[in-house]
Simulated assay, not measured.
Amino acid sequence: PLLQINKYAFSGGRDTIEDHRKHGGNCEVDTSFQFLKYFLEDDAKLEEIRQKYTSGEMLTGELKQQAIAVIQTIVKELQERRKSITDDTVRQFTAPRKLAFDY
């Protein structure tokens, strides 16, 4: 399913590699970059990717691969955590309890 990013994610890249290398990509409309904005925890890495993509150094396919790698890691972590959930965990989480408010 994540590999569908390669095929279907809207990109901010140019029509040709030559145009992209010359003018760079548009991170504001690029779906893969938007994924990275939310899921990549390393702000310095995100800025590096943004600079490379907008300068034309990084192509759309490379940006999509970065997004896929980050999302696959997150999905794998979520799947592992989900395995540890038991009926008791759900009962504890959903049990009604008084909330403490400090006014």
Rank of each mutant, 00 (worst) to 15 (best):
E41R: 14
L78A: 15
K64S: 07
F10A: 12
K22Q: 14
C27G: 03
E62P: 09
R81S: 07
K52Y: 02
K83A: 02
L40D: 02
Y53R: 00
Y53K: 00
L40T: 03
I68T: 10
L78S: 10
T16S: 15
D19Q: 13
A44E: 09
H23L: 15
V70C: 01
E28I: 12
I71Y: 00
K52M: 05
Q34M: 14
H20I: 14
K64G: 04
Y38P: 01
G24E: 03
Q34E: 12
I17W: 09
Y38T: 08
I74W: 02
K37G: 01
E80F: 03
Q51W: 00
S11V: 08
T73A: 12
A69K: 11
Y53Q: 01
G24N: 13
L36V: 03
I49F: 04
D19E: 14
E80K: 00
Q51T: 05
Y38L: 07
D19F: 05
G56R: 05
L36H: 02
Y38C: 06
F33L: 08
L40A: 04
Q72E: 14
Q51H: 07
R50Y: 08
T73C: 07
F33T: 13
I74M: 09
S55W: 03
L59K: 10
G56C: 08
S11A: 15
K22V: 10
T60E: 08
V29D: 13
